[in-house]
Design a protein around this nucleic acid. Structure first.
Length: 274
DNA sequence: ACGAGCGCCTGTCGGC
DNA sequence: TGCCGACAGGCGCTCG
């Protein structure tokens, strides 16, 4: 499900609370109840439950699509993949059938890692690099200049769409926001990265930042049965709009498959650069 | 170096 | 109505 804006929304929800419940910062993990073993990527299930018990949630960060819980002794990383979500609930509620891990936080509060499709994973480590060492730069990192971005694009001959989905190139974009960024930047998804001019690559970086910022501002996108709150789906320019008019020129949006992922673009606005 | 194909999972939707 | 394939916000692996 979630890409950078959705993960950021969940991070804020957990850090700040939402009126229904308070922030979970400062809470102590009394126990972790794992109901789907493979949700725990590292260490073993028993070690995970043993080590995490008694640790305090000091702070919650985000890196790309990863949530990072800084605990008193360890780092807890969480990746929601396609259908994962996190809910703070009062204890004693009937369990949801798709809860995979329940963290009991005391004070009658629990944090549920809910994941219909079971692709999501958690890690409990001492060194973050063990899990996120290969991630590319954070899109909003001011150290990521136009010049650096241009050089990174020039150094490869990748199709733009799969490249933007590659988390070691740039951390945080998924299928929605990469289609949206390419449409805003007027770049064809199959254009090779080394064909971009300095100006085009600068525009791409700027558009990536704009769509992510807009997504965060809308509290993410809500599609299908998953997710709550966000309304960025009402502002899609290309994603999921096959056959509907391009918001800029009115031509029908096309859908193709690239790297097994559906890809939406305007054949007029996003001409391919050979 | 790069991309295609597949596996991991469960649910929804549209067509016949 | 019932079945069946396509599809879904992700990613790691193997194979050319």
């Amino acid at each position: 499900m979630p890409e950078l804006p959705e993960v950021e929304t969940i991070r804020n929800y957990l850090r700040l609370g939402n009126g229904e419940h308070p922030s979970i910062l400062g809470k102590i993990i009394k126990s972790a109840e794992v109901t789907w073993g493979r949700s725990v990527a590292f260490p073993t299930n028993d070690e995970f439950q043993g080590k995490i018990t008694g640790q305090t949630i000091l702070e919650i960060d985000r890196r790309g699509k990863f949530l990072i819980f800084h605990l008193s002794d360890n780092e807890l990383l969480l990746h929601l993949r396609m259908s994962g979500d996190l809910f703070v609930r009062e204890e004693g509620q009937p369990p949801d059938p798709y809860d995979r891990i329940i963290f009991h936080l005391g004070d009658g509060i629990e944090l549920a890692f809910n994941d219909t499709r079971k692709f999501g994973r958690v890690w409990l480590v001492t060194d973050l690099e063990q899990v996120i060492g290969n991630l590319g730069p954070e899109p909003f990192d001011t150290a990521l200049s136009e010049g650096i971005f241009y050089e990174r694009l020039q150094s490869m001959k990748r199709q733009l769409k799969p490249l933007l989905l590659d988390q070691s190139f740039l951390a945080g974009l998924g299928n929605i926001y990469s289609d949206e960024a390419l449409h805003m930047a007027h770049l064809h998804p199959l254009t090779r990265s080394n064909r971009l001019s300095l100006e085009q690559s600068g525009r791409l970086l700027e558009c990536i930042r704009q769509v992510l910022q807009a997504g965060i501002h809308s509290h993410g996108a809500s599609i299908d049965w998953v997710y709550r709150g966000g309304d960025f789906q009402n502002y899609f320019r290309a994603y999921g709009r096959k056959g509907l008019p391009c918001p800029e020129c009115g031509e029908p949006i096309e859908r193709i498959v690239v790297g097994q992922r559906s890809t939406h673009f305007c054949p007029t606005c996003q001409a391919k650069i050979e």
